Simulated assay, not measured.
Amino acid sequence: MKKRLLAITMAALMGCSLMACSSGSSETKTDTSSKAEESKDSESKADESKADAGEKKDAKNFKVGMVTDVGGVNDGSFNQSAWEGLQKAQKELGIQAKYVESKTDADYIPNIETLVDDDYDLIICIGYQLADALKTEAEANPDKKFAIVDDSSIKLDNVACLMFEQAQASYLVGYVAGKTTKSNTVGLVIGMSTDTMNEFGYGYLAGVKDANKDATILQNNVNSFADTGAGKTAANNMVANKADVIFHAAGGTGLGVIDGCKEAGIWAIGVDSDQSKVAPKTILTSAMKRVDIAVYDEAKAALDGEYKSGVKTYTLKDGGVDIAPTTDNLDPELLKEVEGVKADIISGKTVVPKVKADFEAKYGDIYELD
């Protein structure tokens, strides 16, 4: 009897052991299966994303949003030009378009996230100041397409970097300033001293000096793209020191520069867009940086399934930078000279300096805003 009870007990224990093993094996299998399914899903989504990149989208359901820098959408310059390009895309391509305005640096990430959460197909950030925020969001949302103006530091598969040879445009207006000044004193106001903004400076100073080697160039870094009061003060100080032509590359701050020039009755030179409409009798010309074209091109490429990450650079040769088409205040003979200067830049005969070493090799240490 004892032997029978022992046998039954052993059998029961073995049965429990087998059930426990069977249960553990089942959980592991389910877990592995789940991971395999997730892996397949991930690969499938990646494949769909690649396929999606090459397909033309339905325009009426295609959404492109832009985030301004602190200069705001009505800066009469950089951000406004970008928005005009996106509005053109909306009108001509039939897409949906929206901008989100940044008041401070702290708005950049929340503004980008707003467009991500609203499922925008392409999100364009206007200005290098948004680079860190964009990189953070692009890494967190690899399935979203992004673009940024004036920054080429982000090396991600879902970020397009839209760059410009702005030194070429500022060289042209510098040449105009050097030929136009009567006092032999001109001014330069920039919003901030960065690599991008300094390209404007090097180009302008080089143009002035090549047109008029005796010209004095007053320089001021305002450290803001949204302080019209500081812009006007900078212009007033230059007027007090006999400047009769002042170029600004300062976004919204530049509206103050233009106002100061208007009150003093001297020439102002605009930037990014044709700013003649801001003050028709004050704006001599403008250094065009066609952010509007770049934004339009990027929206169209994304809509057509031709979006590409990486750097795209706009130049004088392709019309991405230029002198403004409004020429009411320019001498016709000077315009002819400018056309010759443009041809020399495009052909490579004239090489416009963009960096400090190249500038100083020819003109010396006269740039004061580094």
Rank of each mutant, 00 (worst) to 15 (best):
Q168I: 03
A226F: 00
T313G: 08
T181Q: 12
T228M: 13
M10V: 15
V64D: 00
D121T: 06
K317P: 01
G201T: 13
Y171K: 09
S153K: 10
G207R: 06
D69L: 10
D292N: 13
I293T: 15
K342N: 07
A167M: 07
D121W: 05
A36N: 11
D370Y: 08
N184D: 15
E360K: 12
G256E: 04
V239Q: 05
K29V: 12
S183D: 11
K56N: 02
L18P: 00
E165V: 07
A59V: 13
L93C: 00
K342L: 10
K60M: 05
G65M: 03
M163F: 04
L218I: 11
D117A: 15
Q129C: 06
V271A: 14
G251Q: 01
P110G: 12
A97K: 03
K342H: 06
K145T: 07
N74T: 15
T185F: 02
V291P: 02
T285Y: 01
F200V: 10
E333D: 13
E48W: 07
S49Y: 05
E263M: 11
M10A: 13
K356N: 09
Y367W: 11
D151V: 05
K103W: 00
K3L: 15
S102T: 04
F146W: 11
D244K: 08
K312S: 08
T228E: 05
D370N: 10
I346M: 13
Y367V: 10
N61S: 14
E263P: 06
A131C: 09
K342F: 09
E43V: 14
A299G: 04
G15L: 15
M19E: 01
L5E: 14
E199F: 00
V70F: 03
V64K: 04
R4P: 00
S44C: 08
S153H: 07
H248W: 04
K63R: 13
T313H: 08
N329A: 14
D31E: 15
A302P: 04
L188D: 06
I366R: 09
K356Q: 14
S170D: 08
S17N: 12
I123S: 01
A299L: 11
G54V: 12
G72R: 02
Q80Y: 01
I283P: 05
G85F: 02
L156V: 04
K356I: 06
L18G: 04
D259E: 15
T253R: 07
Q275A: 09
K312Q: 06
I269T: 08
D105T: 14
L255M: 14
P325V: 14
F359Y: 11
S81D: 10
A287I: 02
K362Q: 08
S276L: 06
A20G: 12
